[in-house]
Nucleic acid binder design. Sequence first.
DNA 1: CGGTATCCCTTTGGATACTG
DNA 2: CAGTATCCAAAGGGATACCG
Lengths: 116, 116
Amino acid sequence: MLRKAIEGIDSPLVRAVNEVGDGWMLLILWAAYHNTSRFDDFQRELGVARNILAERLRRLVDNGLMEKRPIADGARRMEYRLTAKGQALEETLRLLYNWGDSWAATAQGEALRAAE
Amino acid sequence: MLRKAIEGIDSPLVRAVNEVGDGWMLLILWAAYHNTSRFDDFQRELGVARNILAERLRRLVDNGLMEKRPIADGARRMEYRLTAKGQALEETLRLLYNWGDSWAATAQGEALRAAE
DNA sequence: CGGTATCCCTTTGGATACTG
DNA sequence: CAGTATCCAAAGGGATACCG
């Protein structure tokens, strides 16, 4: 996305976008806020390819936004839960969601804007 | 970024990230909030390749976050100004910035988190 | 259920040189 | 000053098949 040049820029904004600035990650977090926690549930809800989902979940876990653990002690089934860090982003994503809702374009939205 | 599968998902979150979910665009907006408005000023401040900058500015203009116009009537020099839509995102970006500052990782930040 | 491995192909990034 | 054009390498996307 921003390969090399941007690596020299240490802005909190860049760090943030490097951790969550991807449509799939946002959708995963959004689903998690609504209590989705299992791999296959994410997969079905989002319709994302399994390798992509796996990679995004791994990044979210690696970056500390989610954690992965057995659904119960000793269980083999896994679940993904938000950490405090992941939860801390909820308000921001809600604002972004609202901005997208108010301003970012569907075809209709564009028509409305153009009509202003 | 999210090619085809995600195109079928019409979430405001996805629309938002498609319009601004890129490190360069965020940095451009951030600079604009701080009164940068000229092509070469953005270029020097960010150290971004000219073609990349041009493409990002075009997308921001196309999506209605910024507008491009002569610095004065009839002038040939151009400037980029935030529109209401672009300004509407400032609070969100400030939150994202703060989140990045508090949670997203420099090497030091990771060490801090790990020490919790 | 929860992934990993593989394949292929498109897209993108960035450098650089050029233009009015 | 404000871009455009060109080039190349690299990364990323998605489908699918496979595994314990």
